Amino acid sequence: MMKISLRRGLFVSAVGVMALGLTACGSTSGNNSSASNTGNTSHSSGSQKTMTFRLADDQPATYPTVKGDEAFAKEVSQKTNGRIKIKVYPNAQLGAENSVIQQIQLGAIDFGRINAAPLADFDKKLGVLELPYLFKSTKQEWDVYNGKVGSDLLNSLTTAKMVGLTFYDSGQRNFYNSKHAVKTPAQLKGLKIRVQKSNMMVDLVNTLGGNATPMAYSEVFNALQSGVIDGAENNIPSYYTTNHYKVAKYLTLDHHTATPEILLASQKTWNKLSPADQKIVRQAAQDSQKVERTAWNALVQKALKAIKANGNVITNVDSATWQKAVQPLYKKYGSSYSSIIQQIKNTN
């Protein structure tokens, strides 16, 4: 809906990966095939078969999602007495996110932590999570993710040969600018706001009264510093780590989007597991969410401490006012999600 799939060309590359023998991960001792050149092995101990799987993440080893990945892998190993091992590969060691999705579909990679936005190209229901001001509060957001709506969204990934296991936090995006405090949409009027190259994001800023300015992320700091743009939008840790907080001191906590991360498995890998092992893996994934969210909150608090120490002006808003202002976007982008949106509204 909101994104144009650019990944067809990657399919050939992913098939090439298969041909080179990178799909041996997760094989059991009943197979005669050799282990892949990534070091994945399997063997049996009596009647117990040992399986080693790979999990891809494109973030650094200290990032909250990777901490969640590691907690997931640790619990799976503990609950299976070391019979199922999951090795986490951070820093995009197994490829960029788009390539990893293709490899997971093919079974060349067993597990992955992927943002819901690119996954929406493969499962269109997930596109609902990119709509602005979708949730009334953080509590409602996570009640949705961990309730029936979230479960249905995770289960729908099976149509794309993937198994959704749990949601991870990737923060809420907020506006910030170098001109003045913004509490209402009217105060955003006329401000040149950098956005991603996304039709929905351009329409969001323009609908709120700002002037959307698509721009490469690497150019934002200099553009803010020189006045080419007045502001941008991102989650709080990114606002801090990019030093944007030093050149755009007015932060508006409007939480316009909160597209989550998803921990998922390849359907091919999932089918290798017994029902009992599937239950262990799914529960470990759900348990790891708490670890990831705790780590994410710690990162947010660290960023806020530095932002406040810098003297920045942080403004809270009435979310209902902003939600009302973007209703035209729901007519344009949300019509195919009306049932899911209503279920979200009914979640208190």
Rank of each mutant, 00 (worst) to 15 (best):
L6R: 13
F11W: 07
L20T: 07
L22A: 01
T28E: 06
S34D: 04
S36K: 09
T41K: 12
S44R: 10
K49A: 15
T52C: 13
P60F: 07
T62R: 12
E70C: 07
V76G: 05
S77N: 10
I86Y: 01
K87D: 02
V88H: 00
Q93R: 13
N98V: 05
S99I: 09
I104Q: 03
L106P: 01
D110N: 14
A116T: 15
A116W: 03
A117I: 12
D123F: 07
D123M: 12
L126Y: 03
V128T: 02
Y133A: 00
Y133I: 00
F135D: 00
F135S: 00
S137K: 09
E141S: 12
W142C: 11
Y145H: 10
Y145T: 03
N146E: 09
G150M: 06
L154Y: 03
S156R: 04
S156P: 05
S156G: 08
T159G: 06
T159S: 14
M162S: 02
T166Y: 02
T166E: 03
T166A: 14
F167H: 04
K179P: 00
H180Y: 10
A181T: 13
K183H: 02
K183R: 11
T184N: 08
Q187P: 02
G190Y: 05
L191I: 04
S198C: 02
M201S: 03
M201T: 02
D203G: 15
N206Y: 13
N206W: 06
N211C: 05
N211M: 09
A216Q: 15
V220T: 10
S226Q: 12
E233C: 13
N234W: 04
S238L: 08
N243W: 09
N243V: 13
H244W: 10
A248L: 04
T252G: 01
P260I: 08
E261N: 13
E261V: 13
L264F: 05
T269V: 14
T269N: 05
W270I: 05
N271W: 11
L273N: 07
Q283H: 09
Q286T: 11
S288K: 12
V291D: 08
V291H: 06
R293K: 15
T294K: 15
K302H: 07
A306E: 10
A309P: 05
N310C: 10
V313Q: 15
I314T: 06
V317P: 01
A320E: 13
A325E: 03
P328W: 12
K332C: 04
K332S: 06
K332N: 04
G334Q: 13
Y337A: 04
Q343N: 09
I344N: 01
I344R: 00
T347A: 14
N348I: 11
